[in-house]
């Protein structure tokens, strides 16, 4: 019972932390307040409005100067389906983009779409291309946790959170790239740098909370020998 309660708490905290990667606009303070209440000293510092604005526009947006979206498909091989599989091999064989990354709607997104279908959940239009956005992944984990389905929580953590380390690396790469080209056409580059630093702090927090949740799930039933998810 204690382990189950612990799992539910950790899943809720993960969801709240992940929600900070959503586009809040001018209402972002309320999201950070909720995080502060739920996470205590682990909560991220409240950014200035300017930094939060740059985070949402130039980091957490596709096609942006420091674009680093927390969307699983972008950090995984796009498709794993083997060549010619699936009844009537198409001309040309396997998906052309099998190994490519940085593409939306890869296998992880398709899998999440199937899960949402089974759970009768709909992805809101702004996330249509990103059903595997960390906001939605964490929310799904939380739904399973609150329903007491530790197996499903473990499966989700194992399948859909292992990329957070790569995401953290991507943020670091963007930060280095910004430093290298700060003189090339980016208004208030220092502000963008702070936005990237803040994103990194959010990502670090998320990684820690995901690890925490994975450990708590392991404690419920030793059948699942899950490794820490962020490695």
């Amino acid at each position: 019972m204690e382990a189950m309660r612990s799992m539910r708490e950790r899943a809720s905290r993960l969801r709240i932390a992940a929600a900070l990667f959503a586009p809040w606009g001018d209402d972002y303070r309320a999201a950070y307040e909720e995080a502060r209440e739920a996470l205590g000293p682990q909560a991220p510092a409240l950014p200035t409005a300017a930094v939060r604005r740059r985070l949402e526009r130039d980091v957490l947006a596709a096609g942006a100067p420091a674009s680093a979206l927390p969307v699983e498909s972008l950090y995984r091989p796009w498709a794993a389906a083997p060549e010619g599989a699936g009844g009537g091999a198409p001309r040309g064989g396997a998906a052309d983009f099998g190994a490519a990354r940085h593409l939306f709607l890869g296998d992880s997104a398709q899998h999440m779409r199937e899960l949402y279908r089974r759970l009768q959940l709909e992805v809101p239009p702004p996330f249509a291309a990103m059903p595997d956005h960390v906001v939605l992944l964490a929310e799904t984990v939380d739904l399973f946790a609150q329903a007491g389905n530790a197996e499903a929580v473990a499966a989700m953590m194992d399948d859909h959170f292992g990329w957070l380390g790569d995401y953290r690396t991507e943020l670091a790469v963007r930060r280095e790239a910004l430093d290298a080209r700060a003189d090339v056409g980016i208004p208030q580059a220092d502000e963008l740098a702070r936005a990237l630093d803040h994103a990194a702090a959010l990502a670090d927090g998320l990684v820690a909370l995901a690890d925490d949740l994975a450990l708590s799930v392991r404690a419920i039933d030793g059948r699942w020998d899950r490794e820490q998810t962020h490695r």
Binding site: D26, A31, L121
Partner: peptide
């Protein structure tokens, strides 16, 4: 899109 701060979930449906 702007998120509604009084509703902390994004997935629709129950």
């Amino acid at each position: 899109m702007r998120c509604n701060p009084t509703r902390r979930t994004f997935l629709k449906g129950t």
